[in-house]
Design a protein around this nucleic acid. Structure first.
Lengths: 107, 107
DNA sequence: AGCATATATGATTATACATTCATATAATAA
DNA sequence: TTATTATATGAATGTATAATCATATATGCT
């Protein structure tokens, strides 16, 4: 199998998960420490830590240590562009689905 | 949980998989039938059919029937933009990793 | 009607993933 | 040194996912 395709899939898999999307969204305003992230997204510290580690390992997040605290940030602006486009698709699709119902008056 | 986040995740999950990426890439030049797709990406007919159905259900692909043949196409141009950005990230990361090794002469 | 081709699907298996709880480790403060 | 706070991780569990084989269904052809 094309390993280029596998790398692409790995990058996208690092984003394509609800908890990770919440984390990334919270990081839109820049670097935050774990202690700020997990209460903000309402997930367990443990689970949050695992997702952060996953994304860092896969090159999506950067990691900076300052004393006891670990600060994570989104490393590539393209990550936000990807999410914005996914949002566009999701919106367009959900509108299309609504249209199927209310669309009795089909032009 | 925010269901908006779950929809975004669903859209991205429909793309974030090696076999599906191969399919989408093959569909860059437009609509193709199943009988063209599975030999092109070198996967079983059965497995290809499942992934096509998955992506169609999740609003990523359109589906058109013509006789015995079923033609699939990528429905939203944003899908390609997402993949292109994932490719950019994957490339940048793999270059950074190479740099870690060869980078003895660090400027 | 019978046959060939295209696509889909049930059942199964193996693997990966997300989450939780409890606990380990590291840094700092008292 | 002990206590406290921040983060990570082992073990366990449940659930989802991908792939395969065999077979069903649908269409069109002879």
């Amino acid at each position: 199998m094309s390993s280029a395709t596998n790398y692409q899939a790995d990058v996208l898999k690092s984003i394509a998960q609800a908890t990770r999307l919440k984390i990334i969204d919270f990081l839109r305003n820049g670097e935050r420490c774990v202690c700020e992230i997990f209460p903000a997204i309402d997930e367990e510290q443990s689970n949050t830590s695992r997702h952060l580690a996953y994304m860092q390992t896969h090159g999506i997040l950067s990691r900076r240590k300052d004393g006891v605290k670990i600060y994570y940030a989104v490393k590539h602006p393209e990550v936000f562009e990807i999410i914005d486009r996914a949002t566009t698709i999701a919106k367009r699709e959900s509108e299309a689905r609504i249209g199927l119902f209310s669309g009795a008056e089909r032009r």
